[in-house]
C-alpha cells in the first residue's frame, strides 16, 4: 500500500494564520487497521477493514461516512474500548513524544491504556457530553478530580488549575458549580472538552461531538475544537456532518462499509475539483445546499460484504471491473475515479 503521501501534513488552512510547520513525524499513524466482531452462529461483522491514515501535529482530519459504516468502532479501537468479541489487526502507532515511548494502541494492555494513554496521550471528546459527565457532581468537582489525577496538583494550585482548565475550553467560570443537567447542550460539550484537554494529550479524538446541536452551536463547537490544534495537537473528528467537516478539516477521510474509500485535502474535496470517489461525490450531492438527491439504495450489511467494491451496487459508474475490489492508491480506492488521478495527486504533493 502506498500511504506515504497521505501522512504528510497539509499546508496551513488559512493564509492569515499559518499553522505549525508540517512535521515529518506524525503523532499517530494507523496502518491496516482491521476490526472484526465475532457474533453468534459463526456470524462475523467486518466493522473496519484495512484502514490506514496518519495524523500530523496541528492537523485536523475529519472521518466522515453514513451511520453504521464503522466510524465509531474505529474510534473505540483507538482507545482500546472495544468489547470482548472484537478482534483487531494492523497497527495504530502513537509516536514517541515528550518522553513518552512509542506505543501501539491495538496491542497495549488495559493498565497501560488506562494509566498512560486515555486522557494523557489521547483525549476523547465524547458523542453525548450529557452521558459522559457524572450527573450527580458539579462540573468543578469533576474537573478538579481529573486535574488532580492527571497532573498531580494539590491545594490552591489545584483550584487555580481547575479554573484554567475550564477557561481553555471556553467554559465560563461562573458555571463551574452547576450540575450537568443545568447546562445547555453547548456548555455541556465545553465541559466535556475541558475534561478531554486536561491531560494535554497531543491527540484529540472527537466522536460525533455535534450530534443534536443546532447549527450555530455546531459551528462554535467545531471552531473551538479546531482552535486546540494551534499548539500542535492533532484532531481526529468523526462526524456525519459534512458542513462541520468542511468548516474545520485539513483533510477528509471518507469511510464506506468499513473501508476508507477516499482520503483528500479538504479544500480540494469540498471545492474544486471535488471528490474523486463516486460515493464521496454522492454524499456531497445529497446536501441540501447542493443537489439534495440521495444516493440510491443503502450501504451493505457489514456481515455480508460483497467480494468486489462494496459501493458498486449503488454506483452509477460501476462495471465488470468493480467485481474485484479496488486497492487504495494515492488516497483513493476506486476503479473509475471522477477526477483523473494526476491532477489530484499534484495538489496532494504540493
Amino acid at each position: 500500500m502506498n500511504q506515504a503521501q497521505t501522512t504528510t501534513a497539509p499546508g496551513p488552512k488559512t493564509a492569515t494564520e499559518p499553522g505549525p510547520a508540517p512535521s515529518a513525524e506524525p503523532l499517530l499513524s494507523v496502518t491496516g487497521l482491521t476490526v472484526r466482531f465475532r457474533m453468534r452462529a459463526g456470524r462475523q461483522v467486518a466493522a473496519v477493514t484495512d484502514v490506514s491514515f496518519g495524523l500530523a501535529p496541528g492537523e485536523c482530519l475529519a472521518l466522515v461516512g453514513e451511520s453504521g459504516c464503522g466510524k465509531s468502532v474505529l474510534a473505540s479501537a483507538l482507545l482500546g474500548l472495544l468489547p470482548g468479541n472484537a478482534r483487531t489487526d494492523g497497527s495504530a502507532l502513537l509516536h514517541a513524544r515528550g518522553g513518552q515511548p512509542r506505543l501501539d494502541l491495538l496491542t497495549a494492555d488495559e493498565p497501560t491504556l488506562a494509566r498512560t494513554v486515555r486522557g494523557r496521550r489521547v483525549g476523547l471528546v465524547p458523542q453525548s457530553p450529557a452521558g459522559h459527565l457524572t450527573p450527580v457532581r458539579t462540573v468543578r468537582a469533576q474537573l478538579t478530580e481529573t486535574v488532580r489525577e492527571l497532573r498531580g496538583l494539590r491545594g490552591p494550585e489545584l483550584a487555580a488549575a481547575t479554573v484554567a482548565a475550564a477557561e481553555r475550553a471556553a467554559f465560563p467560570a461562573d458555571h463551574l458549580d452547576r450540575y450537568p443537567h443545568e447546562l445547555s447542550g453547548g456548555l455541556a460539550q465545553r465541559a466535556a472538552t475541558a475534561l478531554a484537554l486536561v491531560g494535554d494529550a497531543p491527540v484529540l479524538l472527537a466522536d460525533e461531538p455535534t450530534t443534536g446541536l443546532d447549527r450555530a452551536l455546531v459551528d462554535r463547537t467545531v471552531d473551538e475544537l479546531r482552535g486546540h490544534t494551534a499548539d500542535g495537537r492533532g484532531l481526529l473528528i468523526i462526524t456525519h456532518d459534512l458542513a462541520a467537516a468542511e468548516r474545520i478539516a485539513d483533510r477528509v477521510a471518507v469511510m464506506y462499509a468499513g473501508r476508507l474509500v477516499e482520503l483528500a485535502p479538504a479544500a480540494r474535496f469540498f471545492g474544486t475539483p471535488g471528490p474523486r470517489h463516486p460515493y464521496a461525490r454522492g454524499l456531497l450531492e445529497a446536501l441540501p445546499e447542493r443537489a439534495f438527491t440521495p444516493i440510491p439504495g443503502m450501504p451493505p450489511e457489514l456481515d455480508a460484504l460483497p467480494a468486489g467494491c462494496a459501493f458498486a451496487p449503488r454506483c452509477p459508474r460501476a462495471d465488470e471491473r468493480c467485481a474485484t475490489r479496488p486497492e487504495p492508491d494515492d488516497g483513493l480506492a476506486c476503479h473509475h475515479p471522477l477526477v483523473p488521478a494526476g491532477t489530484a495527486s499534484e495538489e496532494t504533493h504540493a
Binding site: 461516512g65 453514513e66 451511520s67 450530534t211 443534536g212 456525519h240 459534512l242 454522492g282 454524499l283 456531497l284 445529497a286 446536501l287 441540501p288 439534495f292 438527491t293 440521495p294 444516493i295
Partner: peptide
C-alpha cells in the same frame, strides 16, 4: 434528520 447523514436525509425527504 438531526441524527442522519446527508444521503439518508435526502432519501427520507424524498
Amino acid at each position: 434528520t438531526a441524527m442522519l447523514d446527508a444521503s439518508t436525509t435526502a432519501a427520507l425527504v424524498t
